[in-house]
Design a protein around this nucleic acid. Structure first.
Lengths: 171, 171
DNA sequence: TGGCTGAGTATGTGAAAATAAACTCAATTC
DNA sequence: GAATTGAGTTTATTTTCACATACTCAGCCA
């Protein structure tokens, strides 16, 4: 039986289409990182940049947007501010990634990997990711709890504890 | 030695900041899937929807935007059109995911997983992903070629074959 | 022949986001 | 005390987005 069918209370209604999508985790993540520049800022943090002027220079993004995005990422706990002091200058803020920000790496690596496969220059990718310890190439994979590789087509999406139907009496 | 330093030809220049980011695979992927609604449409395809009216109903997205996004996804080879025929009605188009579209699943699951961890309702996620064969929960992981799990902090990003500096004579 | 349905297209308007460029501000050096 | 620098803020313009509604179009059915 199709997994969605398990929650089908009204036989005339398709639970896929009448479910409440307001608590979708994908949509909620996109609310935070789905705006223009946000993921590219994280890319640069991930590659080692931390200063306002660094982001501006490498991204070529408008200053006010950059300021807005950085403030939001700090508010969300994805980045944190610290200070740095260049000799002969006053202390200034810099941005570092938090563990919560690090947890976005699989999603960003997924985008990177797809782009490497389908949109790279003929000579290959601009940047390679490798394991710091052994130097081997790293990629993102889908696995089940038992550790076995899972192909995308073998994933089954089933209603979770917060599954709700839309505007009906629900579960 | 820091990997970026390996390509540092001009000692006064930081290769991270003066590199050409126009061939970044992350940015190129976002050019395609970074617009509003696009990833949510893919989510619905992934969950089993295929018809124009299904997307419209469950997403609540304006028809003209939906039509534009679907056309673009088909042009990019992420979706393909087929036809279906309801008894007593004429043939109509439907949208199915291609292998190229399936390869976006790791990226989307990365977003899902982050949202499940940091933005879920108190009772948990709305949707769970499990391995069709064994029923075990699936998630995305970063691994090196040797199959070992890799933590985000242990990933090193190094210049790849298409690495270029910006407006300088480059490698 | 006329109505119904699903899948769009066309149009117009208001809101939001992106961009560009000028301006501020505080410490630090000259 | 004037100039400099990094890190922003402010303001104005342009572009895109969102939303609602109306319209089209092709076949099926009565």
């Amino acid at each position: 039986m199709d997994a969605w069918t398990e929650v089908l209370l009204d036989p005339g209604m398709d639970p896929r289409l009448d479910r409440d999508t307001s608590n979708c985790s994908i949509a909620r993540t996109l609310e935070i990182v789905g705006e223009k520049w946000t993921i590219l800022i994280l890319r640069e943090v991930w590659y080692g940049s931390s200063r306002f002027s660094d982001f501006e220079r490498v991204l070529g993004c408008p200053r006010n947007l950059l300021a807005t995005r950085l403030r939001m990422l700090v508010e969300e706990g994805i980045l944190a501010t610290e200070t740095y002091k260049e000799p002969g200058s006053r202390s200034r803020p810099k941005y570092v990634i938090t563990p919560k920000g690090m947890d976005l790496v699989p999603a960003v690596m997924g985008l990177l990997q797809w782009g490497d496969r389908y949109r790279a220059d003929p000579e290959g990718p601009a940047v390679l990711a490798r394991h710091r310890e052994c130097g081997a190439h790293v990629d993102v994979q889908i696995r089940c709890e038992l550790g076995h590789p899972v192909e995308a087509k073998d994933i089954e999406s089933v209603p979770g504890p917060a599954f709700r139907m839309r505007s009906s009496e629900g579960a």
